[in-house]
Amino acid sequence: MAESVKLTIPSDSKYLCLVRKVLHHLLLERQLSEEAAQRLILCVDEACSNIIKYSYAGCPDLPIEISFSLADDSFQAKIRDYGKQCDSRKIKPRPLDKIEPGGLGTYFMNEIMDEVSYCTDRETGTLLTMCKHLKNELTSS
């Protein structure tokens, strides 16, 4: 049975560590390896950072709604904002052979997660959904 946890944070980067702590606790409780847990945490953190930076343009008091869903062999994160909608066709990570600062957050999300989708079919903001199959990521309990 899927277990779901929801939290809402203000769009201030000082709350990112809180999201990481909550997710870390949830993932380790589900016998996920530390490495796999850290990778999923990185993706959620990068998604929230992008919302703070781009959707809300640095405004620190707008809502970011996050829900984590953990089933036996899958993890799903849904992250909702009410800011500037993104054009998912324009979200492209930079080529890795170009060594320069920036552009890695989206790359991490696409590289680590099995599915990443952006839904802007709403009046404001974006719903980002990221899924990861965990069959090979669980430690022996």
Binding site: R20, Q38, I41, L42, D45, E46, S49, I99, E100, P101, G102, G103, L104, G105, Y107, F108
Partner: peptide, 16 residues
């Protein structure tokens, strides 16, 4: 114990 893309970007800036 944790670094994200902004941290990596900062170190890449240092390298450059």
């Amino acid at each position: 114990s944790y670094i994200d893309s902004s941290g990596i970007a900062t170190l890449v800036e240092g390298l450059q």
